[in-house]
Design a protein around this nucleic acid. Structure first.
Lengths: 199, 199
DNA sequence: GCTATCTTGAAACGGTCATTCCAAGTTAGT
DNA sequence: ACTAACTTGGAATGACCGTTTCAAGATAGC
């Protein structure tokens, strides 16, 4: 009986993700969203609710579609430190060149804003961090089993270290950090964790 | 002949720093500044100019009064890796407890916002990064001279690594990261850089 | 005490913010 | 074709944004 939506909510949300990602939440107005998506306020509010709910939905979509797949392939990669190195290679490439260059990471950016006061947002940040750390841990456990880790290295602590390093890469890339310098830094980190038999 | 200011611009700026630091720039209105400082719009604009100039001044004050002194004492500390460890200890303590707990770092937060589009802000971020890296480097060169670094460790790359780690600590602490976990991570990082003769 | 020069208080500026409302339009089942 | 249920366009909401303006007040040198 009812009328049906004249747009694809998923495509709209993807547009919103990119808006918040590039410009930040606080500096992006509902008018920007209306202009970029082409739909009007009524449809926007009826579909997603207000701005904060829209931001939460964007954050969820970002982690679902971008973060988690990358974490999954890292966790499943059986090559140990090589897997970690390639994860960072892809990250740096995506952050410094191409369509999303200098956008950083939506989740990392969210840490710095005032929007992390929202408990639901905070929970998403924590979940994202845990998933990143766990993926690193899986790769490091594999590396350890293959004798790639330096003696006495705690995979758990090293996983947390690499996760924080990823935050740093995301942050600095947004301010224009040089890709070569970031690559060098990651290489140094991995070398410091590795037994010197592999490099 | 003229009248003289009825307030201390330096004290006002310190109040503004804390406002921007805690709440973020985008979410802090001029009205918030007026309320927090007690002075009115005329005096505010006559003394500091508009909001963007006020923010730039706050950033300069933050780096002058908070970042740079910490960097200086790190660079001058002759104990090598121990100096680095204490730098991070102080950082984590300041970020997770006390008056500024969960505020993160004003400069790190600035990376994520839209305000880094301002060339002058961008320059401040780059300068801050360089000073942090240089301080780390000085400590690491000292460590190397004392045989504290693992063979084959490049102090320059390691300095950059530790700088990025500091960004990660600042970011995650703002989202409520546990101090103990951060300490553990820093310890793991330093251990991975150290020759196993010292711990 | 007068004056030149600055500061201060308070109101007002146009613009943009997120959100709401409602009449008109569209659809699917009867 | 009629209707119930929903969507859409577009205007309107009041609140707040950063900034400007200007008359009144305060100060230091004469």
């Amino acid at each position: 009986m009812p009328d049906v939506k004249h747009f694809d909510p998923d495509a709209v949300l993807e547009t919103v993700v990119r808006l918040f990602w590039r410009q930040g939440v606080a500096t992006t107005g509902i008018q920007d969203v209306v202009t970029a998506t082409g739909l009007n306020r009524s449809s926007l509010y009826a579909t997603f609710g207000g701005k904060q709910e829209l931001y939460r939905a964007a954050l969820r979509r970002y982690t679902d579609q971008r973060s988690r797949p990358a974490f999954r392939s890292l966790a499943q990669d059986q090559r140990g430190l090589r897997a970690v190195a390639e994860f960072f290679d892809g990250l740096i490439e995506a952050r410094c060149a191409g369509e999303h260059a200098r956008w950083g990471c939506l989740v990392v950016n969210a840490h710095a804003g005032a929007e992390n006061g929202d408990p639901e947002v905070r929970a998403l940040l924590d979940q994202h961090h845990q998933e990143l750390r766990d993926a690193m841990l899986a790769a490091l456990v594999t590396a350890e089993a293959q004798g790639q880790l330096a003696a006495g290295t705690d995979p758990g602590a090293a996983a947390e270290l690499l996760a924080l390093l990823a935050y740093g890469v995301n942050l600095r890339s947004r301010a224009g950090a040089d890709a070569g310098s970031l690559h060098m830094t990651v290489t140094a980190a991995l070398q410091s964790l590795s037994s010197r038999t592999v490099v």
